[in-house]
């Protein structure tokens, strides 16, 4: 029996057993909680879409509520408006077509833009972004970090508005690059200045934006070609 006690199995049986039991426990927790977590994420996406497409200043101080496909924006002063958000099938994690109208079934509304959900590996874990695009997909209207676990005080700076501001209004006809400092990024509309000490996180964000923009542009172009070709 000594050989069994000294074998890998004899030494590690407790760890293997615990890994199996804990794995099953985590799977059960995931199954139970993931619908609720997805619901929370969807509510957050709906809340962020107006700011991404209309600009942060346009919705500052406004009350934003969502019900189903409709997002109602009530500014502190002025007329309230309604956005209709329709999720479209896409290769990106999710693609939302956003139009502005009165919110009634008959009103198709005016296309305001597109918001896509994209993700990829960052420095520490997966970074998930929302990328806003104009109706003709020619410019980025803004980005929002949906989830990240980057290094505190370094990589987690990607959530700050001063970093995200670099992406607002950037044309989409060429992929974005990362400049290591202000001098490298200056004068180049396609260059984003990297966060100090977090070049990997900055590059990851740029890669996600580039991939997501390419996917949305291709899918929107394919759809409009399909519509044009119809008799």
């Amino acid at each position: 029996m000594n050989w069994l006690r000294n074998s890998y199995l004899g030494q590690a049986w407790l760890i293997l057993l615990m890994a199996g039991v804990f794995g099953a426990l985590l799977a059960a927790v995931h199954l139970k909680l993931s619908p609720r977590i997805e619901e929370n994420i969807r509510a957050e996406i709906m809340r962020e879409i107006p700011g991404l497409l209309l600009g942060g200043d346009a919705v500052e101080g406004a009350s934003i509520t969502s019900a189903g496909e409709l997002v109602r924006i009530e500014p502190a002063s002025g007329e309230p408006s309604v956005l209709r958000v329709i999720e479209r099938p896409s290769e990106a994690s999710a693609l939302y077509e956003v139009s502005e109208g009165d919110g009634t079934e008959e009103d198709q509304g005016r296309l305001v833009g597109w918001v896509a959900r994209g993700q990829d590996h960052g420095y520490a874990d997966v970074i998930e972004l929302l990328v806003g695009l104009t109706a003709d997909t020619s410019r980025i209207t803004g980005i929002y970090v949906l989830s990240q676990k980057e290094t505190p005080a370094l990589g987690d700076g990607i959530v700050r508005s001063d970093f995200r501001r670099h992406f607002v209004g950037v044309p989409t006809d060429s992929p974005l690059t990362v400049g290591r400092n202000a001098a490298e990024a200056a004068g180049n509309p396609y260059a984003v200045q990297a966060l100090t000490g977090a070049t990997v996180s900055s590059r990851s964000v740029c890669k996600i934006v580039n991939d997501t923009v390419a996917t949305v542009k291709r899918e929107v172009a394919e759809e409009s070609e399909g519509l044009d070709a119809r008799p």
């Binding site: 989830s147 505190p152 987690d156």
Partner: peptide
């Protein structure tokens, strides 16, 4: 470590499900 990691994951997911804004605020902590 295996035991601690399991319960941390449960705590993390529970916060994300029932206290989502706080889960976002605490982030990687």
């Amino acid at each position: 470590t295996l035991t601690i990691a399991t319960f941390v994951t449960i705590a993390d997911r529970t916060l994300a499900a029932f206290a989502y804004p706080m889960s976002k605020l605490l982030g990687p902590y």
